[in-house]
Design a protein around this nucleic acid. Sequence first.
DNA 1: ATGTATTTTGCATACGTATGCAAATGAAGG
DNA 2: CCTTCATTTGCATACGTATGCAAAATACAT
Lengths: 328, 328
Amino acid sequence: MEKKFVSAKDVAKLANVSQSTVSRVFTPGASVSEKVRRKVLEVAEELNYRPNALARGLINKKTNIVGLAMKDIQNPFYHEVLGMFSMKLREKGYNVLFVYTKNEEIQQEEINHFLEYNVEGIIITDALLSSNVVAKIHDNNIPITLFNRYHKDIPCNSVSSDNINASKEIASYFYEQGYRDIVYITGKINTSTNKDRQKGFIEYLKEKKIEVTILEGNYTYEKSYYLTKKMIENGHRPEAIFGANDITAIGALDALREKNISVPEETAVIGFDNIKMASWPSYMLSTWVQPIEKMVDEAIHLLLNNDRVNSPKAVKLKGKFIHRNTTK
Amino acid sequence: MEKKFVSAKDVAKLANVSQSTVSRVFTPGASVSEKVRRKVLEVAEELNYRPNALARGLINKKTNIVGLAMKDIQNPFYHEVLGMFSMKLREKGYNVLFVYTKNEEIQQEEINHFLEYNVEGIIITDALLSSNVVAKIHDNNIPITLFNRYHKDIPCNSVSSDNINASKEIASYFYEQGYRDIVYITGKINTSTNKDRQKGFIEYLKEKKIEVTILEGNYTYEKSYYLTKKMIENGHRPEAIFGANDITAIGALDALREKNISVPEETAVIGFDNIKMASWPSYMLSTWVQPIEKMVDEAIHLLLNNDRVNSPKAVKLKGKFIHRNTTK
DNA sequence: ATGTATTTTGCATACGTATGCAAATGAAGG
DNA sequence: CCTTCATTTGCATACGTATGCAAAATACAT
């Protein structure tokens, strides 16, 4: 039982045409008479022939592959992102070469495979890479887009929410409600998402002469849960908590619930992301919606239509606040 | 600014050797003198050369690509699975071509891309495909492994938990505890995972002359939450609930909590999967652990070492019960 | 029918790599 | 130094497809 691969030559033979003609039938816009086209398609169908994407890629330098590297994450937000990328790229005729990483900073070695397969672009979500890795990739003329991360020293495109203004709006909301004892539970502190959310939030309130209590979390439920619990046990029962993402907010929420602190009456809570879980009846978490679809669209657009690698753009998209039951 | 692709020929020229020699340097086990190898590697490094995987695949018929199709899922269980597959395949030198689907039954069109890229195997998680699609794939001599699904009419390998015996053990646990008013909240009813869990559970209890109450869910939190709530409002407060997966069980748990029914005193709850969330302090859900790592290992082994496509194996692996706070 | 414009087709070659084969080089032994 | 044998190297070709070019076939106008 041989590895039986059907090639254009096989089809050509059976259809009494040349291999070139078969190729043209499968090349949009190429010149083939209607009669021959039908004949070839018929034979192709019969032999179950499909053009070999590898050979095609070799000639065209068009592999139709995009590399997607995603960091080890608990956050369901990124699962939605992954699904969205997969669907959208497929619609545009691209395939996804997927790599899952545990490193906050993607290593050269993890990217090399992308280069070997001549991917037409690389998307990196929830992680960074060093600038010399970026340089190497750009040497090969391959565009990169960071999703939901950016860094001034990393010269490549990025797409994210406008975290600063989003968290300012959240701060403003708390302020308007009359809250003065306000807590921010951070995400991983060295991430750009957290930095910006923290910055916008704190700055706004500083202008109002309010000092925010910072609890240093790491974007996980557990950490946030224990931080909140300990805070309460220490006698601190704030009026409002902003969690750096929904998981964080939910952890806080569960801690509050356990301590029988009523939400939103005694303490209001707001998250960030609008993951599915946020709308579960038992949580009904007020949160900030990241416009995933727009972000993904923009990331793909940036990746595939950037004429110039040298002028990296940092796109920030605006989301919106969703009021549910954890705010008044 | 041209697309500057560095080929073996470029390296050859600069290193004063033939292209063949360069190739041999990058082909494990090929014969090259130590002196030449060093020289070539040095030049390769300098030019940032890496062998083109597409051209390699063309010749070798070894693309080192595995196709992975995953169904639209909320279930965090599958995120862990995805991560595991990605890591394990990478360790073995394979790359993952990823497709996200919304169809319960994978369509030919979604698989075609895999075939075009000459993937060496296809893994399908949480979904099925029709037997004629399987036939077409096997025509190309490409192995398939279903993960956590199987069907008697689909002639391909599969790996899953031993769902029947697992749920029998859960039933037995409930029985030993003296529970007689027992509820099973189903997953999507036409899935093999649900069918087997339901079957094992019901059969065991039927032998004990116990009639299980069936609530028809669909593996989502919302559905389970509303079913449970309605049941309670109808005056039915069972002694024990088995949710077809953790998300289902958590939905039930939240409904019980809202109705102020104490868990596990008044009602015990068990889930299935052992997702991260099950160990969150606010849930501490007793559940059945699926041995993800073993399952993934086995799936990969089955996929890549199956000498005969014609004798599909259905591997079922045993998990174990984890006792937390939702059972006595 | 003839000539011209247009479309369709096949030939040959290229993409970047791997490999059988033979030539070249080196090592070893007398 | 010559012979024999092992190792290393280059040449040529193949993988499956796309495409420029010229030949062939068709369409059209007269």
